[in-house]
Design a protein around this nucleic acid. Structure first.
Lengths: 188, 188
DNA sequence: CTTGCCTATGCAACCAGTTGCATAGAACCA
DNA sequence: TGGTTCTATGCAACTGGTTGCATAGGCAAG
């Protein structure tokens, strides 16, 4: 149940509302964890009633009031405990790979467009990550001597960049393979 | 719901029982999709009652009888339909990355062992994939002119290999970063 | 002045996946 | 004889996550 812990980390980096968290999960946190706003609101509520978080009603002008959450001492403890527990190394669930193997029983050429679409999405993500890296870590506005938190954020971002580069290279390989097969076994 | 489709692909490649499928999901299919036997049995039952699969009771000697499943024509159609639908590009959920960012609020040095453990697991997986690739695709027993199905299996396996290599390189980066931080901010 | 988007929160129903447990015959080892 | 492992299947309860829908004020564009 790492969503809880991802929320703790995010709120320690910067307190905020459910809505703000949802947007962070579309950005920096989203590099390695995704969540919808419904999921976030539900978990926030549970965490607050468990005493892991504090809430503060913040009236705002020109927009609805928000509830700003921050990490309470028991939340810090819970995170610390989790950090010292071993976790299972990830196992992947890659729908596209299922499709690729399935293409053997259908028309491999029909998959080319789909793979190209994924290629575009991953290229966009890579560009987005690289822009973020330049803005926060490698460009002229980057901190001269980053602290531990910034170093760790950067190494996680480098992981996202490496993942996208690897995926793009693999999708090139997939496309070449699909085209070779379609060439050898043309369908009219 | 790609488990259903992963099962269809696997049964098209080779009919088998729930137990056999579970073992395939620990091996080749497991490169890109995981599932427990409970999950598999439940889905098989549903797919059979939906008419996607045929069952055949196979009495065996020296071991319990098994139910051998194979893909029925409606199952083939369902797979084909899914192959022509676009799917969402994956988004990752990487617990370890949450931990790494969380380490900024705890002791970064304490994470070194955990990361080393993951490093070992991924190195083992890589070795396992490479052995499989040598056995089935690049070694002396490999098919001289592979058919489309074998080409596609190979490109998926290459994806698994690329993923593990990328992950191992990133974990090296993470370890170097953690050690640098621990050196700058030692705890006694 | 209406349509659509942005901020902000939430419920209800559903689906997918995990965990724990149970059964049962045969093989193998000490 | 008793413990463990392997084949083989399954139920029940739970947790995590998705989808669809609802509300509600303010803002900007056409």
């Amino acid at each position: 149940m790492a969503l809880e812990h991802a929320i703790l980390v995010s709120l320690l980096e910067q307190p905020g509302s459910g809505y703000e968290l949802a947007r962070r999960f579309e950005r920096s946190i989203g590099y390695f964890w995704t969540a919808t706003h419904q999921q976030i609101y539900r978990v926030l509520k549970r965490m607050e009633s468990d005493g892991l978080l504090d809430v503060r009603e913040v009236p705002q002008e020109r927009r609805p009031d928000k509830k700003e959450y921050s990490v309470a001492p028991p939340g810090r403890d819970a995170l610390s405990r989790w950090l010292h527990e071993p976790i299972e190394p990830e196992s992947i669930r890659h729908d596209l790979a299922v499709k690729i193997r399935g293409a053997a029983f259908d028309d491999p050429a029909a998959l080319v467009r789909e793979v190209e679409r994924h290629h575009r999405v991953h290229s966009d993500r890579l560009a987005h990550y690289l822009a973020g890296e330049f803005r926060d870590f490698t460009g002229p506005d980057a901190p001269v001597s980053p602290d531990a938190g910034q170093e760790l954020q950067h190494v996680v971002l480098r992981g996202g960049i490496a993942y996208e580069r690897m995926t793009i290279a693999w999708l090139d390989d997939v496309l070449a393979t699909l085209r070779r097969i379609a060439g050898n076994h043309p369908r009219t």
